[in-house]
Structures are given as C-alpha cells and as structure tokens.
C-alpha cells in the first residue's frame, strides 16, 4: 500500500469565516486557497460570509480596471470539491442593501444567531 492509499485520517469540522471586502486586502483570496487545501484532505468544510465578507460573492465582478485576477468564479467551482456548505449572514446582507440575488452562487442565508450556534459546533475555526 502506498502512503497516499493509507486509511483515512480523522475528519474534523472546519469553518472558514470570511469578513473582508475582496481585492483591497489579500484575505479573501488566501481563504479560498486554504479552503481548497482542506477539501483535498476530505475534511468537513463550512464557509461563512459575514460582515464585509458578503462582498466576496458579488455577481458581475470585473477586475480589468484594477489589474488583479477576478477569483470569484472559484466560488462556483467549490461544489466540484464537495464543498457545499456556504452560508451568508442575513444581517450582513441587509445592512449593505444586498439580497441573495446579488450573489454569484446559491447560498443559504442564515441569521447571526444560527451562525453563532454553528460556530460553536466546529473543531477548528479559521478567520479571514
């Protein structure tokens, strides 16, 4: 048996908390990179978008004018990596005048209190 064929290790619950506007800082892109690493190790991955993190999922991003790569299509590809738990905070959308129709993927909208509960259930919480 080759090392990579060994029995599967423990599966932990990982939550990635995304709170920043994309492009002004590197947080949003770095989060995506680390999410894909966790997916490669078949972990139980949840992404949440709260506060300014909701802007990461905006439809119609066009970065040609700022000379940076538009990485928003990657969110639509996450399903292919078995990452299907994407949650957006209701209160964060509302305070920014946004609705789920403004977003690039079908997400589940959860309340702040629901997300607080979900956060407590995790083994590891990573903040971006």
């Amino acid at each position: 048996m080759e090392p990579w064929e060994e029995e599967e290790g423990p599966v932990k619950k990982f939550m990635y908390v995304n709170r920043k506007v994309p492009y002004g800082t590197i947080y949003a892109l770095e989060s995506l990179e680390v999410v894909l690493i966790a997916a490669a190790f078949d972990q139980d991955v949840t992404l949440v978008f709260i506060d300014d993190g909701v802007y990461q999922l905006m439809k119609g991003q066009d970065t040609t004018g700022i000379g940076m790569k538009n990485f928003s299509p990657t969110y639509r590809a996450l399903e292919g990596y078995d990452i299907e738990k994407l949650y957006v905070e209701k209160e964060s959308l509302e305070s920014r005048g946004l609705t789920p129709d403004d977003l690039v993927v079908d997400v589940e909208v959860k309340t702040r209190s629901e997300l607080a509960d979900l956060m407590e259930e995790q083994d590891v919480v990573l903040s971006f």
Partner: peptide, 14 residues
C-alpha cells in the same frame, strides 16, 4: 473610483 466598484461587482447605477 469606477474600476474599484466594478471589481467588487458594485453597479454604478446603485
């Protein structure tokens, strides 16, 4: 700045 709006999917109409 328009380029920064468009990068973030924010419509100039809004």
């Amino acid at each position: 700045l328009g380029p920064d709006l468009r990068a973030r999917g924010l419509s100039t109409d809004k």
